[in-house]
Design a protein around this nucleic acid. Structure first.
Lengths: 319, 319
DNA sequence: CTGGTCGCACAACCGGCGGTTGTGGCTCGG
DNA sequence: CCGAGCCACAACCGCCGGTTGTGCGACCAG
C-alpha cells in the first residue's frame, strides 16, 4: 500500500537488469555485491514481488521485473528532468506568465504544439518589475507582460516584443442589461458595477484596470481578498447588475447551464498589450525559437489604432 | 551533480506547496513541523536552490519552486505508475510477445495508437508453455504465440484467437543468388544455407523452423550461442551464400548502404500463425479492448489455404 | 511602542536504515 | 567430486532522519 520507492534502489535495480549480475552492477555502482543484494531485496519487499530469479550464473528478470523495468527507467528520467529544471545553467526555458488561464499561457501552448520537444517551465511572478529583475538575474528567461509600468521605463538590456493585443470583452449573466447587446462601448458602462477578482496591488495589470476605469468613469468593485476567479461564474450567473472584463483568450469555465455571455467592446476596444520581455544577451536556443514562433504567428492587429484603447504608459517602445 | 532526489522529500515539498504552510503539511503527513523543515531543507540542499521563501505567514514558492513543482508531481505520478505495474490485482494489462521487434509488438503498437490511454506492459517469456502457465496463474493477461507446441494441446481454460498470419520472407545480401528474384519457392532453397540467430531450444518457434526445414529439406545454420540479431545484417551483406527468414512485419534495421533484399516466398508461402492466448475468465477491460481491436483489424488472410504452409501442430483449434 | 502569537529554524538526542566485512550454500563446469 | 562463481545471511557500526525543546523574526492588537 505504502508507495515508498527508494530511487537509489530503483537505480540499483536498473543497473542489475542491465548488467545481468549483481556483482557487475555492484562494481558499476562502486559498492559491494552485498549492498546491491540488500537494495534489491528491499525494493522487492517494498513492491511485494520478486524482480529477479537468482541463478548460479547471475540474475534474470522475472515477469514482474520485465514489467517494472521500463517504468523504473521512466522514473529515473523523471527524476533527471526534475533535477534539471532547477539546475543553474542549461536548464529548460523558464517563462513568466500573468496567469495560467490567460492569453500568454494560450500562446505558450500554441508554441509547444509547434515545438513539442521543447522543455518549458512556466512560472508566475508578482509584476513586471519583478519579472525584469528576474530576467536580469537569469532566474527566468522571458516574461509575458505589458511592456512597462507607469513612470518606469525598461532598462537598456531588456528587449520587449509586442506579441499579442488582446481585446477585452464584457462577461455577464443572462439577466444583465447588456446581456443581449452585440457590442458595448466602454463609456456606456459608466455607473454600472464592474466586478474584478483579486487585483494584487502594485502590479501593472492592476494599474491597467485602474486606468481603464478612470478613462471611462467606471466603478470597479474589487472583491476579495484573494478569492481568485473560482466564484466568478457563480456570482455573475445570478446577478443582473454585475459584470466583469475578460480577455478574449482568457479561459473562464462555467457549468453548461449558466448561459454567461461574452459581449464585445467597441468605440474604442480596450486591448491588453502582451509583450515578450527577455534579456538582450540571453543565448537560450529555445528562447530564439519562441521569439521566432511568436513573431511568425504575429501580433494580431485587426483593429485600427484609433479604434483601440490602452493606457498611455503601456504603448510599446521597442519595435 | 549527484542526482540523488529523495522521493519522500519530494512528497513533502508538494505537500508544503499545496498547504502553503510547513505546519499544515506536517499535520497532513502526520509528522512534526521540524521534520518537514528538515526534509525541505535537505531537498533544497540536494537541488542547490531555495524552493520556498519563508515568511511569518507561511511559505511561498520561489521561482525555482514554481518551476520544480510540476516536475515533482510528475515524478510522484511516475512512482505511482511504477509501483502499480507490479501491484497484484488491478494492474496494467500485461502481454507476452515473442520479441519486441516482431509482428506481435507491431500489433500492440497499433493497438496503443488506437487506445492511447491504455496502460500496457510488454514482457517476453520463454515459450508458449511458460506463457500458458503464466496466464493460468494470473502473472500475465495475454500472450501472442503460435497456438500450440507439438503434441501439447491447450488447456480448456485458455482461449486462443488467431490474429495474424505472417508470411515469411527471405532476407539476403545483394550478392545472393536469389537477391534479384521476385519470389522464391521454399523447395528451391534446398541445399542453400539458412542462417538463423539464436533459436532457444524447446520453444515453439524453434520447433516451427525445425519443421519448416524438415518439410522442404533446408539446412539451417544455428549461429550462436546468443548473439542475437544484431550482427545479422553485417553477415548477410557480405555473404553470397547465406540468407535468413524474417517475418513480413519483423523489423530488421541495417545501414542505408547495405542493400539487403526481402524476397517473397511462394508455392507455398510459409506463414507464422500468431494467436492471442488469454484466460477464459480474465475480466481485465483492456484485454477485451485488445481482443476487439485485433479481431476488428482482423487476421489478414490474403492467401488461399493451399498456398500457405504451417506446421501441422500449429493449425488453429479454437474458432 | 510593546507584549502576544504565529510560523519556521536550530540544537540535542536517539533508534534504525544502509553501508561494510566475513561467511555459507547453491549451481554449474571440468 | 572438487573448485569457481555468484548470491544470501550475519554481525557490526556510522550516520541519516525522526523526535522534543527552544530560539528568533514578523505581524498585529492594544
Amino acid at each position: 500500500m505504502s508507495t515508498d520507492v527508494d530511487l537509489n534502489a530503483v537505480r540499483t535495480f536498473v543497473a542489475v537488469a542491465d548488467a545481468g549480475r549483481f556483482q557487475d552492477a555492484a562494481t558499476d555502482l562502486s559498492i559491494t555485491q552485498q549492498a546491491v543484494s540488500k537494495r534489491v531485496a528491499a525494493l522487492e519487499k517494498d513492491l511485494g514481488v520478486r524482480l529477479f530469479t537468482r541463478t548460479a550464473r547471475g540474475a534474470r528478470l522475472t515477469v514482474d521485473g520485465q514489467a517494472f523495468l521500463p517504468h523504473a527507467r521512466e522514473l529515473l528520467r523523471a527524476e533527471e528532468r526534475a533535477a534539471a529544471s532547477v539546475r543553474p545553467g542549461r536548464r529548460a526555458l523558464r517563462v513568466d506568465v500573468i496567469g495560467r488561464k490567460l492569453a500568454p499561457a494560450a500562446l505558450l501552448r500554441d508554441f509547444l504544439r509547434a515545438h513539442p520537444s521543447t522543455e518549458l517551465d512556466v512560472v508566475t511572478l508578482h509584476d513586471v518589475e519583478a519579472a525584469v529583475t528576474a530576467i536580469r538575474s537569469g532566474t527566468i528567461d522571458a516574461s509575458f507582460r505589458a511592456v512597462a509600468m507607469p513612470g518606469r521605463p525598461l532598462p537598456d538590456d531588456i528587449r520587449a516584443t509586442p506579441v499579442h493585443d488582446e481585446p477585452l470583452q464584457l462577461l455577464t449573466g443572462p439577466g444583465h442589461p447588456f446581456a443581449d447587446a452585440p457590442a458595448v462601448a466602454p463609456a456606456e458602462l459608466a455607473g454600472h458595477r464592474i466586478w474584478m477578482p483579486e487585483l494584487p496591488p502594485g502590479t501593472e495589470w492592476a494599474a491597467y484596470y485602474a486606468d481603464l476605469a478612470a478613462a471611462f468613469g467606471l466603478s470597479i468593485d474589487v472583491v476579495g481578498p484573494h478569492f481568485g476567479t473560482e466564484p466568478l461564474p457563480d456570482v455573475l450567473a445570478d446577478s443582473t447588475t454585475l459584470a466583469t472584463f475578460v480577455g478574449e483568450l482568457t479561459r473562464v469555465l462555467w457549468p453548461a447551464d449558466y448561459d454567461l455571455r461574452r459581449i464585445a467592446l467597441h468605440h474604442p476596444t480596450p486591448v491588453y498589450p502582451h509583450c515578450l520581455l527577455h534579456h538582450r544577451d540571453n543565448p537560450h536556443p529555445a528562447l530564439a525559437a519562441l521569439r521566432e514562433h511568436l513573431t511568425r504567428s504575429g501580433p494580431e492587429r485587426r483593429l485600427r489604432g484609433d479604434e483601440i484603447w490602452t493606457p498611455a504608459w503601456a504603448h510599446r517602445t521597442t519595435p
